[in-house]
Amino acid sequence: MPPSDDVVLRVENLVKHFPLKRSGSLRAGGVVKAVDGVSFELRRGETLGVVGESGCGKSTLARTLVGLEKPTGGSVRFGDAVVHTARGRELRALRRRIQIVLQDPYTSLNPRRTIREILTQPFEIHPDVLPKARRTARISELLDLVGLDPSLHLDRYPHQFSGGQRQRIGIARALALQPDVVVCDEPVSALDVSVQAQVVNLLERLQKELGVAYVFIAHDLSVVRHISDRVAVMYLGKLVESGPGAPLYDAPRHPYTKALLSAVPVPEPASRTNRQRILLAGDPPSPVDPPSGCRFRTRCWQATDTCATQEPPLAGPEHPVACHYPLAA
């Protein structure tokens, strides 16, 4: 384990709102509060899992972390550099350091380029990383690293590969410039179960070999538990709980985390009769007009008047929770 003060990414009160355009009207609509005050630290070589349901803002968080979206407020710092105010050389250097792997291996690779061209591109954008003469060898190394055969695969096009192989190519591209941080946005959710385990194992092996840190964003709680050192649970644009994987999963402190975990089907038919399941009523509220106070209170079974008026901060040392009445450990 790396020393705990070795922070590579420091996210402070990150906010991303999208203005809501009403068609046929000049009146300004509301805003979608996709990410609404998220803070965390990512340490060198660790995996932070971020889980949440659709619409909770986790993909917007991913895109904002790597600089694909400009935040409405707050900051993402890499060392001394601030991701969204950096310009010129500093920005180019930053982009090298923080990469992304996207969900859909079918749309994230250019269908008209060979794998060789796809993997050469990062070096064309950042020519100072590696002299031209050594790039071919490096690209072969990269393919080898992700378990593909360079002699067979370099001159093929994306459509000639299966979904799992394409995701390997996406990972090779993300690793080409030796980043410190890779943000993985649902990297295995488009894959078949039998192929998913291959890619999860690959990501873990690469982390051990290269010391890269992951922000692993997914809706699948089982995969996140497996791969993460620490986990953060997101609900309607905010983190409601975060902590090391085992305590968070085995003794959740936020009612939402508890409900979410209890809803995950467990592949053990024998245990299905004696499992306690909390069925949450309804769907998450709209991020355009989130509930006052605690955002989860409209679906929470222990909400009181306090929850409607005061927003609980994410507080606590090792296993912080944003709840007025956290569950006993």
Partner: peptide, 14 residues
């Protein structure tokens, strides 16, 4: 090959 939500497991079989 399935990770489990109710326990922390070592490497997955793939």
């Amino acid at each position: 090959s399935m990770p489990r939500v109710d326990r922390t497991d070592e490497e997955l079989y793939a």
